[in-house]
Each structure stands twice: as structure tokens, then as C-alpha cells.
Amino acid sequence: TGIVNVSSSLNVRSSASTSSKVIGSLSGNTKVTIVGEEGAFYKIEYKGSHGYVAKEYI
């Protein structure tokens, strides 16, 4: 489990790349469930599926 550490919002992406499609966003202080790691990204549970967020903001 981690907490989103941004002042505005954090993009949730379809894969572990900054060039991948943005599938949603999370507000600061949102609790997320981390299910894996891939490079500079965490794989998280997101809306019944999975998404990826940059580690530096969790």
C-alpha cells in the first residue's frame, strides 16, 4: 500500500512508460494498493483492473 504524494493529480498509465496511454488520474493523498514493480513504475490496482504510476510520486 502506498499514498499518492502530489499536490494536484497523478496520471495512471496503461503500461510502465511515460509514453503509454493515460487511463485515469489519482488525487494527492489517495491510498493505492501496489501489486508489482516495473522499472520506475509501480503496478497498482485501479478500477477493477491494473494501472501504472511513477514510483517517485508514491
Rank of each mutant, 00 (worst) to 15 (best):
T1K: 09
T1P: 09
T1L: 13
T1C: 14
T1D: 08
T1G: 08
T1F: 11
T1Q: 12
G2L: 07
G2T: 06
G2Q: 06
G2R: 06
G2N: 05
I3V: 13
I3D: 04
I3Y: 14
I3C: 10
I3T: 11
I3H: 09
I3A: 05
I3G: 04
I3Q: 07
V4G: 05
V4F: 04
V4S: 05
V4L: 06
V4K: 04
N5I: 13
N5S: 10
N5Q: 09
N5E: 07
N5H: 10
V6Y: 05
V6T: 14
V6F: 07
V6N: 09
S7V: 13
S7D: 10
S7R: 11
S7G: 12
S7K: 13
S7Q: 13
S8C: 14
S8V: 13
S8Q: 12
S8N: 11
S9D: 10
S9E: 11
S9P: 11
S9Y: 13
S9N: 11
S9K: 12
S9F: 13
S9I: 11
S9M: 12
S9V: 11
L10D: 02
L10P: 09
L10N: 03
L10G: 04
L10Q: 05
L10H: 03
N11W: 11
N11L: 15
N11A: 15
N11D: 15
V12N: 00
V12D: 01
V12A: 01
V12K: 00
V12I: 08
R13N: 09
R13A: 04
R13V: 09
S14G: 08
S14D: 13
S14E: 15
S14Q: 14
S15G: 13
S15D: 10
S15V: 06
A16Y: 04
A16P: 15
A16R: 03
A16E: 02
A16K: 03
A16M: 04
S17M: 07
S17H: 10
T18F: 15
S19N: 14
S19L: 12
S19D: 14
S19Q: 13
S19Y: 09
S20Y: 07
S20P: 02
S20G: 15
S20L: 02
S20N: 03
K21V: 12
K21D: 12
K21E: 15
K21L: 12
V22D: 04
V22Q: 05
V22E: 04
V22M: 06
I23S: 02
I23Q: 03
I23P: 00
I23D: 01
I23H: 02
I23G: 01
G24R: 02
G24S: 03
G24K: 02
G24E: 02
G24H: 02
G24F: 08
G24A: 04
S25I: 15
S25P: 05
S25W: 14
L26A: 02
L26T: 02
L26H: 01
L26S: 01
L26N: 01
L26V: 09
L26Y: 02
L26K: 01
S27E: 14
S27F: 12
S27A: 14
S27R: 14
S27H: 13
S27D: 12
S27Q: 14
G28F: 14
G28M: 13
G28E: 09
G28N: 15
N29M: 14
N29K: 10
N29C: 13
T30N: 06
T30K: 06
T30R: 05
T30L: 07
K31V: 15
K31H: 10
K31M: 14
K31G: 06
V32Y: 03
T33E: 07
T33S: 08
T33H: 11
T33V: 14
T33C: 11
T33D: 06
I34W: 05
I34F: 03
I34D: 00
I34E: 00
V35Q: 06
V35C: 08
G36N: 06
G36I: 03
G36E: 06
E37S: 09
E37H: 07
E37Q: 09
E37W: 07
E37M: 09
E37C: 09
E38R: 07
E38G: 03
E38F: 10
E38N: 07
E38L: 07
E38Y: 09
G39F: 05
G39P: 03
G39A: 07
G39V: 03
G39S: 05
G39I: 03
G39R: 05
A40R: 09
F41N: 02
Y42I: 04
Y42D: 01
Y42H: 03
Y42K: 01
K43G: 02
K43A: 06
K43I: 14
I44L: 03
I44M: 01
I44A: 00
I44K: 00
I44N: 00
E45C: 12
E45F: 09
E45H: 08
E45D: 07
Y46C: 04
Y46Q: 01
Y46S: 01
K47I: 07
K47H: 10
K47E: 13
K47D: 10
K47N: 13
K47S: 09
K47T: 05
G48V: 04
G48E: 09
G48R: 06
G48N: 09
G48L: 06
G48H: 07
S49C: 08
S49H: 10
S49M: 14
S49N: 09
S49K: 12
H50P: 05
H50N: 07
H50L: 10
H50K: 05
H50I: 15
H50D: 05
H50R: 05
G51K: 01
Y52T: 00
Y52N: 00
Y52K: 00
Y52G: 00
V53A: 04
V53S: 01
V53M: 03
V53G: 01
V53L: 04
A54I: 12
A54Y: 13
A54R: 13
A54T: 07
A54L: 15
K55D: 00
K55C: 04
K55Q: 05
E56P: 06
E56N: 08
E56T: 09
E56C: 12
Y57I: 04
Y57D: 08
Y57E: 08
Y57A: 10
Y57L: 08
Y57G: 12
Y57Q: 08
Y57M: 09
Y57F: 14
I58H: 02
I58Y: 03
I58G: 02
I58P: 01
I58W: 04
I58D: 02
I58F: 06
I58S: 02
